[in-house]
Amino acid sequence: MLSKRIIPCLDIKDGRTVKGINFVNLRDAGDPVELATQYALEQADELVFLDISATEQKRKTLADLVLKVAAAIDIPFTVGGGIRSVEDVSILLKNGADKVSINSAAVKNPSLINKLSEQFGSQCIVVAIDAKQIDGQWKVHLVGGKVPTELDLFDWAKEVEQRGAGEILFTSMDHDGTKQGFANNALARLSTEVNIPIIASGGAGTVPHFIDTFTKGKADAALAASVFHFGEISIPELKKQLNQQQLAVRIDEL
C-alpha cells in the first residue's frame, strides 16, 4: 500500500541551514548535508530544501549543495526557492535533485509549468502554493505569503494540474507557525478537486496534527520544519503512532 510521507523542510541560506536547529547528534547544525543524512537515517521519506538566499552566487551555491546532498543520501529530495527558468531546473536535476518546486515564477508565468513538465516530466515538477483566507476566500499569496494576488487557491490548483504539475505543496499562511494543526478543510477540498498528490504544510505542532491531516485533510504527505529540527517530534515515534492509527507508513525492517 502506498504510504503517507513525512517530509522535513530545510531552509537554506548561502549553502547553510538557517532556522534554528537543535538536533541531537549533529556536529554542525548549520550543515545541510549532515542534517539531511541524519533525517534519512531517521526514516524521513523525503526532504525539501528551500533556498532563501538572495545573492548573485545563489544559483551556483545551490547547485553545489544539491550535488553534495545527492552524494550523501538515499531518499528523494525536492529543491525550491527562486527557480525561474528551464536552465535553473536543468542544472538542479542534473546534479541529482529528484524534484524542483516552483512558486512565484509559476504565478507570474504559468506557461513555465507546461515547459518544465514537457521537458523534464510531470513527476519532477512540484508547484508550491502559499495561500491564506481573505473574507472567507482562499487567496494565493506570493513572496513567502507577503503579497496577495487575486487568484483563488482551488482555481489555481486545478490550473497547475492541467498545465502538468506532478504534485502540489500547499502551505496555509493562516496556519504556518501556529503549531495548531494543518488547514485540513482546504486540504480535503484540494484532494477532491485535483487528482495529483498534495503535500500539507503549515501548522504542525503535535502527532495528532499529522494524524488529522492524513485522515480529515486527505493529504498524501505532510511537511514540517521546526517540530523536527528542535526534536519536539521524532520521526520514528511519529511513524509508530501513525501506524497504530492504521495509516500506512514506511518503517524500514531490512
Binding site: M1, N195, I196, P197
Partner: peptide, 27 residues
C-alpha cells in the same frame, strides 16, 4: 487514484535473486 503515484509503496510476492535478503512488504 491520484496520478502520478508518488511515494513509498510496499512490494510483495518477491521472487528470485534480485530480492535476496529483502523482506516481503519492504517499501
Amino acid at each position: 487514484v491520484k496520478v502520478p503515484q508518488m511515494g513509498w509503496n510496499s512490494i510483495h510476492n518477491l521472487k528470485g535473486e534480485l530480492f535476496e535478503g529483502i523482506t516481503d512488504g519492504a517499501y
